[in-house]
Design a protein around this nucleic acid. Structure first.
Lengths: 245, 245
DNA sequence: CGTATGCTTGAGACGTATCAAGTTCGGTGG
DNA sequence: CCACCGAACTTGATACGTCTCAAGCATACG
């Protein structure tokens, strides 16, 4: 894991932070309901930061006194299981906010955030967040809907993890990655993950992932070329993931 | 599954609903931050209902245009996996609110709610809820913290389901039940679940649960007497669940 | 060019699901 | 109150899936 800079969260701008009002992430994020004046207010207090691939944005167990907004890049959120194995619980990309859970509960962060693809991330202090909540009910609602959606996704994951076989989970995860990061012009999932990282999503061993990927390839559902995964038959993957055949 | 009454949610009072201001659930719930005037407002629009053991409060796939507040009783929230197997994702008891996720996202309910122990439940319409959010930022925050906590719990469950062996998951679930429902004077978990229901939590077959419970008994961590489960060695259960030995 | 890292393959052991009996429990009606 | 019935629970045997370990192979990088 290369960690080129050692960085803490409260930071001078190394990155020339774009104003929230022109940030591409705005429209896709919970902040879209805020007024320009309120966005200006955030601009004045936020910290911006560029993170290289592999860097840590925050670590499970520490505290967050604010929220991170992803302006660019791809992030994985994972936690350490009891045996020390990594479990990826969520991904974040442009427009997503992360790290707010700990700020809300005032409890330690329950997951770590690592950069998968170079990222630009802004940090908004808790006080600013809370004052927005007070001032703008629409924003409250937006945040509520977001957390509700997250808990929904997570509880769906619980069912999947508990009931599906590993190949079904793998199929499911590929579809999830497709939803989150999209496909490139070749129908390949637009993110590069190691087999180990895929294993940490599926909840299995890397060896198993390799065998299962080959299995999917033999079933002509996917095509493999290094780390690139091309989806040949999305419907087939859905069928497999849901035992609908 | 006895279903003595066929009931829809929008309901005349069959149950003499207690006023929110004197309801035992209030202090333990998100509503504690509301003023007496606001509670009165809820009183005027809410519907109250008694549910017998086994009854359905709402079903996965349908829509909720409000939120249910548990005034009394014990509820399980479960969803159907792809193979049609039940997966319990959460429990609710006095002071908990359920069914709000669908109201917020305007998407179908992602879980069903069944009564485990006779329950009294109030229904608060979405419009009232939203007006409270607008009027009372403290309440917004309370709700946010709640949904955040739920998503946290769920994501912890994901890791557990993916990584732990079934006996560890069982130990974990017993501890979870203890936290949720407490112990009676005999150190028995204060809820009666069938082996099948335990299986739906742990994510395994009922036969496996039986064998695993016996295993825990042989390890002198629990004692069994019918459906009652006595916890002999809580620390031991924690150790087992976390592989810390 | 050599070393490290990630990837791939194989063989064996373990855990868990499944199927097929039995047994006990709880409620109902005679 | 007892006998009966169905549901829930328990047990055993077997098969399958998956993890682990061990080794070999490809790839990336200095």
């Amino acid at each position: 894991m290369p960690a080129k800079y050692d960085i803490c969260h409260i930071m001078p701008e190394r990155y020339n932070t774009p104003s929230c009002s022109i940030c591409g992430a705005k429209e896709k994020s919970v902040f879209c309901s805020l007024s320009n004046a309120q966005l200006k207010e955030i601009d004045e207090v936020k910290g911006g930061q560029i993170y290289a691939k592999g860097e840590t944005i925050f670590k499970e167990g520490s505290y967050s006194r604010g929220l991170f907004c992803v302006s660019k890049g791809k992030i994985k959120l994972s936690r350490l299981g009891a045996s020390g194995r990594e479990q990826i619980v969520r991904f974040a990309t442009v427009g997503d906010v992360i790290g707010y859970n700990s700020m809300l509960s005032k409890k330690p962060l329950s997951a770590s955030a690592f950069v998968i693809e170079e990222a630009a991330i802004c940090f908004i202090p808790a006080e600013t967040f809370f004052s927005m909540i007070k001032a703008e009910p629409k924003f409250s609602l937006e945040m509520l809907q977001l957390t509700a959606k997250n808990w929904d996704t997570a509880s769906r994951l619980v069912t999947d993890m508990a009931q599906k076989t590993s190949i079904q989970r793998l199929a499911e995860m590929l579809l999830w990655l497709k939803e989150t990061f999209g496909l490139d012009e070749d129908n390949c999932i637009d993110i590069q993950l190691s087999r180990e990282e895929i294993a940490s999503m599926v909840g299995t061993a890397t060896e198993a992932v390799i065998r299962l990927l080959r299995n999917l390839k033999e079933k002509r559902l996917i095509e493999l070329e290094g780390k690139k995964i091309k989806l040949l038959d999305i419907h087939g993957l859905v069928m497999l993931a849901d035992i609908l055949d």
